[in-house]
Design a protein around this nucleic acid. Structure first.
Lengths: 336, 336
DNA sequence: GATCATTTTGACCATCAGGGACATCGCCAG
DNA sequence: CTGGCGATGTCCCTGATGGTCAAAATGATC
């Protein structure tokens, strides 16, 4: 079934059929009617390979997701997808997991499928050290700033990670805690994690508290089980800690389980503050105190930036989306 | 950049370049070397639109996900993706959310992109009442049996939903509960939900207990907030209930929040059993009793069935993957 | 050293399914 | 009768593949 078959079947030429199928003018109503009738009857659809070959375009936007265990991402993904589909694009989602050759695979797929643009969700620096450098399409780093990375062809949308983390620590300090542990992402490879880390340090410094990274900080991936393991290590190092800030909610939830399995209570013995604001947080008991990122804004702003770059050839831009601190019940005032 | 440019640049002809890039024989090592060198230097990649147009194939597998709030799906998705990428396919993920025109959109995208096959994750009947019927590529219904649906061109991989649900109810009955509520999916539109429902009824009947659907059963989508709302309605109708079976873990978690917000305790006052076995379940306090589906098996079996159908033109098949009941702490013996 | 066989290579063309430039046709108004 | 316009068709182009055939290079054998 090709456009030629439709032409023959309907008694018109290929051009006219093409015009009809692409909603172009200069077609009589009668021709349109007759051709559409045949198209419906035969359930015909244009071959998008041929179409894209000729037009040198595609409608695909690739989304590369690193960190499938992070429960913040599914909801963002779904919104990204929905925005893209609404504007007529198709969405190629690729999960990569902290595993270098998966990043390479994703880069390969992106090269092959020639998406019009790429959205990166989670992870950052390592993407550009590998295969993605050579793909010269507009990119947006979601939840991560490319600002300091030296790639000026790359847009970004991010929460003010440093300030947000600072607020979380400030909150714990305000509640009277001073022996605070931090469960982080990997600050060498993840820019958002680094920023959150810096925010923590800033808060400690303002209060003239020393932050001993060797002791108070444990890096882990953002997942329940990694949060659990990281918390165990933290408890081993800081048996007297009274509060924990985790750089993601899943890490926090994993940490809570670890705290309980060691026989301590949350928040009576140890306060916990997370980061992300996943829906699950408010379904837990106690409700998770957290820094709520605006996933909806991240999704819509990122898509908007990308489409702007694609359609209007706009320059890269960097946007900061607002966050809000959500107190919850998992962090409480330290008893004297 | 076309294959012709590479030919000119390397001093060979297009035929030879094509042979090199497609790993075909009859090319001298020297030619191969020189051509690959140019390819690397110019970072050239075959235009896959042209290639697929000519070869009448694609490497895309579409995955249509219904129910983005169901926390069982992200992990399955990630594994599906990983299996597909390993075997050289690209993965087009499409979320649709209980909204008819999104299903249409997904169908449109599938028609346009001509995937080699489609995997459906979540949801079933409604997909085939709408646009997907006319896409004649192999399909696999994950977590849902097409067996009774009358589509014999459609494979399926599913848990024995009826039996699994029966086990869950049996467990509650064995713990001494008899006033049991059921929070379900929509049994008119979701086949797995219907099966689970039937399993529940079977268990009640075996114990000669009447099941009053009007009162004991509330349908809801599989999400935290819908689970919450459904539980509230259930509590209104059955103030004396002592146990709840929720047809998904997210529903169960939402229900637990609702129970607590009404001032009751889990499991002391009300026992809860979920379904799915999401990782989060064992991080909650109390640990969620649930029926654990084997997501890994569902992912790998589904991909295998699909690729079999695509590559070997195998007939549709229906597989049942094992489940296991995981007691947890959220369901306990009823005090006398 | 000549002959034949085999491998390497490439030019050429058709093909895939569309899109767009341009030509043509019919029709109406001036 | 001609200029203008809308409707329609013809032809070539997109980038790669594959087949055919032939030229050239290499190797083996007598």
């Amino acid at each position: 079934m090709t456009i030629r078959d439709i032409a023959r079947e309907s008694g018109y030429g290929v051009t006219t059929v093409s015009r009809v199928l692409n909603d172009q003018p200069n077609v009589s109503d009668e021709a349109r009617e007759r051709i559409l009738e045949v198209v419906r009857r035969t359930n015909f659809h244009l071959n998008s390979n041929a179409k894209r070959l000729k037009q040198q375009t595609s409608t695909g936007i690739a989304v590369v997701v690193k960190g499938s265990k992070n429960m913040l991402f599914p909801s963002i993904l779904e919104q990204v997808q929905s925005h893209l589909v609404d504007t007529g694009y198709a969405c190629l989602i690729n999960y990569v997991d902290e595993d270098d050759n998966e990043v390479e695979e994703a880069a390969r797929i992106c090269r092959e499928l020639r998406p019009l643009g790429i959205l990166f969700l989670g992870g950052d620096i390592e993407h550009f050290e590998s295969g993605f450098l050579h793909i010269s399409v507009p990119c947006v780093l979601m939840t991560g700033s490319a600002f300091d990375l030296g790639f000026d062809s790359l847009s970004s949308v991010t929460t003010d990670d440093a300030f947000a983390a600072e607020c979380a620590i400030e909150h714990l300090l305000a509640l009277g805690h001073s022996k605070i542990g931090v469960l982080g992402g990997f600050i060498e490879s993840s820019y958002p994690s680094l920023q959150r880390y810096r925010g923590c340090i800033r808060a400690f410094e303002r209060h003239r508290l020393n932050f001993d990274a060797e002791c108070q900080f444990v890096a882990s991936r953002f997942s329940l089980s990694d949060g659990y393991a990281a918390m165990e290590r933290l408890l081993d190092r800081m048996p007297d800690l009274t509060a924990v800030f985790a750089m993601s909610d899943v890490t926090a939830i994993g940490a809570i389980r670890a705290i309980r399995d060691r026989g301590s209570r949350v928040p009576e013995d140890i306060s916990v503050v997370g980061f992300d604001g996943i829906e699950m947080g408010s379904f837990l008991t106690p409700k998770l105190a957290t820094v709520r990122q605006d996933g909806e804004a991240i999704a819509s702003r990122s898509v908007k930036l990308l489409l702007n770059a694609i359609q209007n050839d706009s320059a890269a831009a960097h946007e900061i989306v607002p966050f809000c601190f959500s107190p919850g019940e998992s962090a409480r005032r330290l008893e004297a």
